[in-house]
Design a protein around this nucleic acid. Structure first.
Lengths: 217, 217
DNA sequence: ACAGTATGAGTGGTCTGACCACTTTCAAAT
DNA sequence: ATTTGAAAGTGGTCAGACCACTCATACTGT
């Protein structure tokens, strides 16, 4: 845990600076060269951090002009989520719960989505689940989030996942795989209650496992 | 559209390469130096692309060892997520739905919260609802969000409320007030289904009213 | 006096080559 | 046979150099 992910520290530094200097959405932030100077890092390293911020939609870069704080509203969303999660380690429970809120809602949305009724999606989905050893819990849930077709919810979920450490790690055990199958089946049959119930069971299993492994954080 | 966002092209190139060479999750991908050579780009530029892939959770880098394909290989996802994150042209429908997700979850959480069982909260709540003419829909929902005791969810809800313009405006009509009362009653009785159902009915009423007033956005 | 043009400073985008810190490997020393 | 340590390979960082682009300014020609 010596110096992991320096560019993430820089992200934090930049955010602090922005807050201190009262830079508002739409404003220009200092140039890369000046930032590198002030933060005492190389310009390429700094650029890696800026790339991250850009991916998250926090900044916008315009060649020849400069780098600007994105005035998109999701700016504050990301901002709040990151500060909330980064500086308050008592709130992991809230993060986990909120992520579950979105996952459950996604399952329900899929059940209600008519256009997915006769989809080949499920075949490939199930096939990957059965055959692909690389198909992990993350992928399973992410697919569900995408299928829910609420991109905002997907984005929030994605951010929560980023910030909340590693929620779904470790081996996928057999009983888990069965539960995942059952969730799929329930969704296919449009059985909301059953799907959610199976999801809850799966989640409980994961929680237990996390406890057993002492995987807190 | 001349040459914007080179690093995104590189992301695509890397993905193609991975597919062509049948690299599996967990496998090592070529070193940065070799990749830069093969893709004919500088190493720093390549690293910006790798940073993006890392943020998206597609690869994992270990100092001294190499860069590895992370435990998922849905590279179609990269496109979905990156384009989504980059230019978030989300619809208001998503915002409204997501807000509802949190509101419904809040109601459910309150129903399940033991510590609120014998609360005087409800008395004052109902009293304000009946007597206070300044007590608006906003306040009603906000109180619920607060009572749910998930601060993160509350924060997200606040933001969503800001984004989506004025979701709950206009006069509070009598039938609405009745529905709000019924929601309260159902919550008091720990009747989740009923509470959610009443909430849905209320929301439908609001939607209709919004339509009538041509209050889009 | 005006309109159009050229110049230069500043910015992000890219490339290169050089270190550093770390891990793995394997041959030499014990 | 075991231990040691030197070398090679890797990601992480840095500095400096161009390039391409934008913008503001000063300079032209009429």
């Amino acid at each position: 845990m010596s110096q992991p992910k320096r560019y993430l520290d820089i992200v934090k530094d930049i955010r602090d600076m922005i807050r201190q200097e009262r830079i508002k959405p739409g404003d220009r932030i200092p140039s890369e060269r000046e930032l590198a100077e002030r933060l005492q890092v190389g310009r390429s390293t700094l650029r890696e951090a800026l790339r991250s911020l850009e991916l998250l939609g926090l900044i916008e870069t315009r060649r020849g002009e400069g780098t600007f704080l994105s005035d998109h509203r999701n700016h504050s969303l990301v901002e709040v989520l990151s500060t909330f999660i980064l500086q308050d380690n008592q709130s992991h429970k809230d993060v986990r719960e909120t992520r579950m809120i979105h996952e459950i809602s996604a399952i329900k949305a899929i059940c209600r989505n008519e256009s997915l009724k006769e989809l080949l999606v499920w075949d490939s989905f199930r096939k990957r689940l059965a055959e692909d050893s690389g198909f992990q819990r993350e992928d399973f849930v992410r697919e569900l989030m995408i299928l829910s077709e609420n991109r905002l919810s997907l984005k929030i979920w994605f951010l929560l996942k980023q910030y909340s450490g590693k929620p779904y790690t470790g081996e996928v055990t057999l009983p888990e795989k069965e539960l995942m199958e059952e969730i799929l089946t329930a969704i296919e049959q449009r059985n909301e209650a059953e799907a959610v119930s199976k999801y809850a069971a799966w989640n409980e299993l994961l929680t237990k496992e996390r406890m057993r492994n002492g995987n807190d954080s």
